[in-house]
Write a protein that binds this DNA or RNA. Sequence first.
DNA 1: GTGGCAGGTTGTCGCACGACAAAGCGGGGC
DNA 2: GCCCCGCTTTGTCGTGCGACAACCTGCCAC
Lengths: 236, 236
Amino acid sequence: MATIDTSLVAKLPLFAGLAADELDAILQEARSVRVPKNAHVFEQGEDAHSFFVLLHGHVRASKVTPAGEQVVVRYVTPGETLGVAMAIGLQRYPATATAVDDSIVLAWPSAAWPRLVETYPSLATNTLRTVGSRLQETHSRVIEMSTQQVEQRVAHALLRLAKQSGRKVENGVQIDFPISRQDIAQMTGTTLHTVSRLLSGWEQRGLIESGRQKIVLREPHQLVVLAEQTSDGKEP
Amino acid sequence: MATIDTSLVAKLPLFAGLAADELDAILQEARSVRVPKNAHVFEQGEDAHSFFVLLHGHVRASKVTPAGEQVVVRYVTPGETLGVAMAIGLQRYPATATAVDDSIVLAWPSAAWPRLVETYPSLATNTLRTVGSRLQETHSRVIEMSTQQVEQRVAHALLRLAKQSGRKVENGVQIDFPISRQDIAQMTGTTLHTVSRLLSGWEQRGLIESGRQKIVLREPHQLVVLAEQTSDGKEP
DNA sequence: GTGGCAGGTTGTCGCACGACAAAGCGGGGC
DNA sequence: GCCCCGCTTTGTCGTGCGACAACCTGCCAC
C-alpha cells in the first residue's frame, strides 16, 4: 500500500487542530481502499466494522424502506467522512454507500474509534461539527419537503449538487458525476417521470442541458429564481 | 437559586460516564430557569448564548421558512438537550424553542462549552451520540415524507409522540402535553384541515379519542397497522 | 456492426390533498 | 356567568403529480 499524501489530508475538517505528527499517527492506522464504480463501500444493516474518509470519487448514500423503496440520503464528496455509525452509537450501518464513480477511501476499523477519540479529542468535536451540519441539512430537506412543490425541490437539488460537485464547463456548470433522473427523484421524493418532465421543460427554456446521466446548468441564477418561487406566485 | 437534584440529572445520557464530583462541578455552572407555557426558551436567529437541558415540561422546536411557514422540528422531552448550536459550530440558534407546558431548563453559557468539553471529553462523545440519533430520526422523517401518504405519516407522528410522551390513562395512552391539529400538520407536512379529517375518521372508528389540544390513543396497535400500510394495499 | 437494454421521453388518467369557505364549540379571562 | 377567541369540524372544488403505458435512443458488449 502506498503512503498517503499527508498535505492533502491535513486540510480536512475531521483533522482540524491536529499536529502533523498526530495526523501521521492516525493515518498510520488507515488503509486506503479503491472502490470501483457501482461497488458498495458498505451496506445497510451490515456490521459497522469501519469508518471512512472519501479521498477521491463520489459516493451515494441511500436507504431502502421496509417496503423496498430507495431514498438517496446524500452524495458524499471528497474530503467528507462516511460510515461514522460507530461514533454515533450504532452497531450497523444505517444506509448503503455506493461509489457512483471509481473512488478511493481511507478506512479505519471502527474498533479503533474509541481509542482514537480518547487520544485525540478534537476528532470528537470535529465529528460533532460535521454531524451537526448534516443534521442541519437534513432539517432543511424536511422543511423543503413539507412546504415546497416538486419543481422547487428538484431545482434546489440540482443547485446543491452543482455547488458541491460542480465543474465549470463551456456552457455552464456540470454535475461532476453520473446521475440519473431516478437518482434525482429519490433525492427529492418524487418519480423519475416527473423529474424527466421537469428537466425537459427546463432544457427547452435553455436553463439546463442534459443527457444520459449528465446535467449541465446553463443558467444557475434562473434556477435559483425557480427554486425560491412560492406557489402563490408573489414573492415577499 | 435552589440546588439541583443531582440524582435525577446523573442518569441523563449527556452526563454518562462522569464521576459524581465531575457532574457536581458541571452543575455548579448551570442556572435553572423556569419557562412558562408559551414562552420561548430561545428564538431562531438569536445569538446562541446558552445551551440547555430540559428538566421538566415539554418544548417544541420549530423553524420558519423564508416564506413564513412554520415547520415543527421536534418535541423535546425531559432529560434531552436543546440549543446545542455552539457545539455543532453555529453562532445562532437554527430554530425557535417554545415551552408547550410550564417547563424548567438548566442553562449553561455557550461560552463555557469549549472549556467543559476539554475538561470532560465524554461530554463531546455523549453529545455526538445524541446528535447522531437525531440525525437518524430526521432521516427517517425524510424517508417517510418521500414515500408515504399523509395518513401514514400522521399515524406515525402520533405513535412517536405517544412513545416519547405518552401517559397511561383509562382508555389508552394520552399524549402528555397540549397539541393542536395545526402542530401535527406542521410535523407531518400537511394542513390542519387534513389532520382534522383524519382524526375525525379515526375517532369514529374508535382508534383514538380526541378533543381540544388533547389526543388519546385507544388502539395503538391498529394505528401501527395503519402507519405501516402501503398504498398498493398489499403487505410484504 | 449490431443487438440488447438501461436510461430517458411523453401521453393519458385518476385521485389524494391542498385551498377556500363558513360555521360550531368549549374554555379561560374578566 | 358570560363572552369571545382560538381551536376544530365539515363541505366543495381544483389541481399537482403519481400511476400506468408505450415508445424512443445512445452505449456497451461481444
